[in-house]
Design a protein around this nucleic acid. Sequence first.
RNA 1: GGCGCCGUGCCCAAGUGGUUAAGGGGAAGGUCUGCAAAACCUUUAUCCAGCGGUUCGAAUCCGCUCGGCGCCUCCA
Length: 493
Amino acid sequence: MADRTFRLYDSMSRVVKPLELLEPGHLRFYSCGPTVYSYAHIGNFRSFLTGDLIVRTAKELGWRVTWVTNITDVGHLTQDDVADAGGEDRMEKALHSKEGERFSNVWELAEYYGEKYREDWERLNLSEPTVRPKATQHVREQIVMTQALIDKGHAYETPTGVYFDVDSDPDYGKLSGNTRDGLKEAVRDVVLDENKRQQADFALWKKDDKHLMQWFSPWGWGFPGWHIECSAMARAYLGDTIDLHSGGEDNMFPHHECEIAQSEAFTGKPFSSHWVHTRFLQVEGEKMAKSKGNFFTVRDLIEQGFDPLALRYALISVPYGKPLNFTMQSLRDAQGNVERFRECERRIVAALGSMPEGADTPTGTDLERVAGEMLAAMCDDLNTSVAIAKAIEGTKIILRQNELSSADAAAAAWFLRRVEGLLGLWRVTPEDGCADTEPVVDGVTVSEWIERRATAKKNKDFTEADRIREALNAAGVELRDTPGGTTWAKKQV
RNA sequence: GGCGCCGUGCCCAAGUGGUUAAGGGGAAGGUCUGCAAAACCUUUAUCCAGCGGUUCGAAUCCGCUCGGCGCCUCCA
């Protein structure tokens, strides 16, 4: 397994190529995280899930992974509007919105949404990053880097801020394909400013002593430019050159382009060996937008009763490099499939009493083969469609047998753990298991009801048996008669 | 205006030069069952928007036409 190559599309060279590590067996990876001014939506998470899947695949390959994904808790310009120095940024805008009324300041607002973001992250079963730095905790590094860029002649100060001099970087535009000539039009964080040398020059520091979040710097009170935070944090935790950097497709320009310019001008070394960008998702064939009424946050869908793992399934069912058409139907389709993994778990537990640990020697050669194909699919530019198909093929092999032998159950458990590790579409039911606490219906436990129903059935009292089944069903408990007896499961949406 | 993507069965969707075009949903039939549910099995595209070309050979490459979408601006 260790000799497998992990191939990913690289946006810089525009070709699928093996992920090459600076230090063999150790992936250093930075993913752009969200600006926490609101609840994260499913599009945000499609992009974060790409990072998660890369990390999972790398770990299945036995690599050590240092994964940094930031939280941007500083607001940035919503428009290229320098005339109005008190103009709102995204954080301020959120604070002044109806949603934001309950917060007393932007710091509280950022803290709140950052916390909610981590909750969604956990519910969608993303792996924990090694570090999750906040931009506000690294302002000092950003100031140091900005000062150094001035010293090296790559940046200059104006009455409104400090700007990166795009002309000082002959490679500027190498990621996005944008040329300086093509950048006559203003872009994000490219501020209209008479004092700038070039329209395309972008802000490293904005002078603003009225901004709600401000820090003191060699250039007075103000706040850092958006791009510099990622350059500073990536370097702080991962070093001058990293193996891989990811983000949404919209990050390619200007954000990542500017990060490359800053970091490489600062260190004189290549910034990242590999770039991965996740395509946007659409909803019912259209761009997801609040104005279109097809805008979904993760928590909306979960509160509507959808299984978080089904949402995860739907969001990773199409490879990251293609647009994903998210539909309610696809979410319902996903539900039954994540349930299959749980059904496998029930069969295993029924056969062994619990999920066995350390069953690394599968007796099921079929399962071993399928797991290998599943990993191979992920190594092939994260072909999640094929990997999921393989996971399902595995469940069929397991569920085909009505009762598992203990050897087969051990193999099945091993396979489930591969699905868990690589795709995250199944997770062990928690021990303390509030999730699986036995429901009590009308003051009687489900197992007691099952016994009463068995008695009724034995006495051919099918009316009573069906009445019990219906009552439990109405209470959200589904009964399943198997050759080995009756089991139950909570009904899914 | 600049750049780019997509069009595969009823729906979602993998496959991008060569055996029988993955997988999921749905539908139909079957096994099991008192009935149901769950699970499993079987069936469901001689064909990949249309037209033309390259090739021994194309859903996969090239051109055109039609249709849908995205980025370039806050956005993952």
